[in-house]
Write a protein that binds this DNA or RNA. Sequence first.
DNA 1: CATTTCACCTGGTGGC
DNA 2: TGCCACCAGGTGAAAT
Length: 284
Amino acid sequence: MPELPEVETIARGVDARVRGDRIVDVWFGSKREPFKTPAARQAKGLEGRTIVGVRRAGKHIVCDLGRPPGFQPLEKSSGRQGGAQWIVHLGMTGRLLVTTHDAPVAAHTHARLTLASGRELRFVDARRFGRLEFRDLGKSDGFGAPGAEPLRIGPQEFVALFRGRKLPIKAALLNQTLLAGVGNIYADESLFRAGLRPRRAAGRVTHGDLERLRLALRAVLEEAIRLGGSSVSDYVDAEGAEGFFQLEHRVYQRTGEPCLVCKTLIRRIVVAGRSTHYCPNCQK
DNA sequence: CATTTCACCTGGTGGC
DNA sequence: TGCCACCAGGTGAAAT
């Protein structure tokens, strides 16, 4: 499932392939979801614009777009005027793929953006948890993930996120308004590496333990990005290639297997409605 | 407001 | 072989 490292990998791959390309035609395969913006308005907004760049914000992929064709800037306009954004959330099973125009169309393809180069940007999502949104920057603000970026947050700011909170530390890690980009895999893996039990009340974790958690989280996310993410269900990058970080998981989906550090059997519990895996010996 | 629970959705899996 | 209950989980709405 795409979390921060997977979304980062996809955004980088898509950016490398479509930056500077122009959207010449838009096709949406379904009238119902995944449209956060109505399909017709989205298609109209996208057509003719140039893709300025593609980047990750939390678990979202933001495609920054140039001015629409025939745009007349007002006098004294700022450089940003006329721009727009296409925002993709992959949900659980979403894929954002760059293909040729004649590549076979996979099942559950919901969007096809034909590009001037002959390439195509496709959104495929079997489970329909993904979301597509169009923002006209003349009418609304640019997209900003609500939570802090785990790769950039500093020690004091990290401690402040959890202060006074009674919910389990794992639930806090998953809360996107606190931290943007952490999902079930990297919550479990970072808690293991920091030696913390997932159910510890967030507000009662010591500053020292929180600093260990911040560093463990950053390390695990950076390592996962280097390995192209974790392919555990449907995840593939912009080219359709799988990642390798699933081979480095120490607790996630290892229920009943021996801990790689102490041989104690990995336990599975449910926290915040999610499968949660931990070592009862290594994590206190 | 803080927190918890649940519906959404479909493919894969394991039991019989 | 077929059938079916069950599980996976990011998000947001509803409930507490």
